Simulated assay, not measured.
Amino acid sequence: MASNPASRCCTVGYKHSGTPSGENTKVGGIDAYIAKPSAGKTHSQVAILYLSDILGIPHNAKLIADQIAANGYLTLMPDLFNSDQLPPNVTEDFDFVTWIREGTGGKNPHTTKEVDPIVRQCVDYLHNEHGVQKIGAFGYCFGAKYVCRFLKGDGLVDAGYVAHPSFVSEEEVKGIRGPLSIAAAEDDFVFPEEKRHLTEKLLREASCQYQITLYSGVSHGFAVRADLGKRGSKWATEAAFLQAIDFMDSWLLVENS
């Protein structure tokens, strides 16, 4: 794999302060959160699809979606887990692979067979209901896999950004054709140094535009759940977000196309 399966570090972190300003909504039968730019600050005909980590649509993710919207992008974050997201701080012996394969209780799986259609339905919703012409995808941890799967140069997703990815296969990286930006943590069992270097090699061989930025002194999950009371962690979180916005501005905006 180009990144390892999830581990307990994917559920550990800090809750950030702030009040979400977006709205809970439905996309077909899928629960979702939508954040809209303020009047006069909307980038026309572009949107961001936010594909979350295994905690689903928690407080911190909503705040990030709101920040993306504040930068002019209509932002949609679907529930990828059919209301079976994991709670924070799972036990050390939690079986992530079985949870992906079967879900809680054994009858609610979260494999590509279930998640791919959710992503595709949200892409269609943005095109059909909001008149979107270009879509950028943000993927954190689990969601990064689906950014890679949909970044194939076929017009479904036009640019991708992932932070501390998990569950991404080598074949999924080989299939990437659109521009991709990666924010990586120095201390990351799930996306360690050898996986970063392998990913770089595969992206180079795929001849797609890519960026990999490594943030020192932070661990897996830093882009979403870092301790913002620590200066280094706060800087890395904010810098990774600015990395994502700058990348999307360069690849999505009509005036730059």
Rank of each mutant, 00 (worst) to 15 (best):
M1V: 13
A2R: 03
A2M: 11
N4Q: 12
R8F: 10
C10F: 03
T11K: 07
T19F: 03
T25F: 02
V27Q: 02
P37L: 00
K41A: 03
T42Q: 14
A47Q: 01
Y50M: 12
D53M: 05
D53K: 04
D53Y: 13
G56C: 07
H59S: 12
K62H: 01
D66K: 04
N71D: 12
N71V: 10
G72E: 01
M77Y: 02
D79E: 04
S83F: 03
T91H: 13
E92V: 07
F94E: 06
F94C: 05
D95E: 03
W99C: 03
I100W: 10
G103R: 10
T104L: 15
T104G: 12
H110D: 12
H110R: 05
T112D: 15
E114D: 07
L126W: 08
H127R: 15
H127Y: 11
E129S: 13
H130M: 00
V132M: 07
V132E: 05
I135H: 04
I135V: 08
G136A: 00
A137H: 07
F138T: 09
G139H: 03
C141N: 10
A144Y: 11
C148M: 14
R149C: 05
F150H: 11
D154Y: 13
D154L: 09
G155S: 01
G155L: 04
V157W: 04
V157H: 01
D158E: 12
A159Q: 06
G160C: 05
V168I: 11
V168G: 06
V168S: 05
S169Y: 00
E170M: 11
V173Y: 11
I176N: 01
R177T: 12
I182W: 13
I182N: 10
A185C: 02
D187S: 08
V190P: 04
R196P: 03
H197M: 15
L198V: 12
T199V: 07
L202P: 07
R204E: 14
A206T: 06
I212W: 01
Y215D: 02
Y215V: 01
G217A: 04
D227P: 05
K230H: 12
K230Q: 15
K230A: 01
R231C: 00
S233F: 06
Q243M: 04
Q243V: 11
D246I: 14
D246G: 14
F247Y: 07
L253K: 08
V254I: 12
N256I: 09
S257N: 13
S257L: 12
